[in-house]
Amino acid sequence: MYTSIRALFNRTVVSIAIASAVIVTPLQAEETKTLVFSAIPDQDESALKARFGIVADYLSKTLEVPVKYVPVKSYAAAVTSFRNDQVQLAWFGGLSGVKARLLVPGAQAIAQGEEDPNFHSYIIAHHSTGLKVSEDFPKGIEGKTFTFGSKGSTSGRLMPEFNIRENMGKGPEEIFKTVGFSGNHSRTVTLVESGAYEVGAVNFKVWDKMVEEKKVDTSKVSAIWKTPAYPDYQWTIRGDVDAKWGEGFTEKVKQALLAMDDPKLLASFPRKSFIAATNEDFAPILNTAKELGLVD
């Protein structure tokens, strides 16, 4: 019994020591400042680290500062770490970028993919619904089960919801039997393919890539409608980076992104090339998000 009391006592002391060590150690700041960037986890999460690892290497070489990529688990986590200055540069979607710039005054959109000013979403449907490809909005989706992608996604939530409201005059909750959120685009496709949900909304680039790579059985699920174009993904950088890494750093990062021409790097996004972007380019997204009550 004596030993057990001592063990208990030891454990107490050790734990307190450890708890204080955990709290205190990281408070000692580092000397060299690393530029940390992140990206919203919209698809192919497992490959994100490998994909963005090479982008970090490229940026590090071009900018001559240490650059690190950190993976995050959700759109909100990407925005929150950007806001907390734990991430200074991020590859956001339209909606997450708008939110981030609202929360971090001075933050700027600096570059977007060549395809991003004209982005689309598809409405996809399981074959059992009998819905066919059409130019007009497929009003036959009424009464079906429906899944969005992530709650914070532009192409998987915001724009599909906007178009559904525009065309049906009602919200998704009133139109569909069930409304779900699959989490990301690849899951939306899988769930509709299995018929777990009859209809879904998905990013057109993700769908096209999955069809091309034969990751989806198009005899079971097909894209039946394409939304009108809207602006989507962009690179956003915090306004205080010049103060940290020197005058003109924002411009340097922008030029590095625009100059990215290695197909291997661009395939990470996947985009053909990057073009310049400004905060104003995303005003339509901000207005839509306000209309749907997703930002205050």
Partner: peptide, 22 residues
């Protein structure tokens, strides 16, 4: 139980990362 102190000390180093508190 006898290995616990050792595990705990190792754990501190394992969970530690370079995130700063602000």
């Amino acid at each position: 139980p006898s290995l616990l102190p050792l595990y705990l000390i190792a754990s501190v180093f394992i969970v530690n990362n370079d995130t700063e508190l602000s």
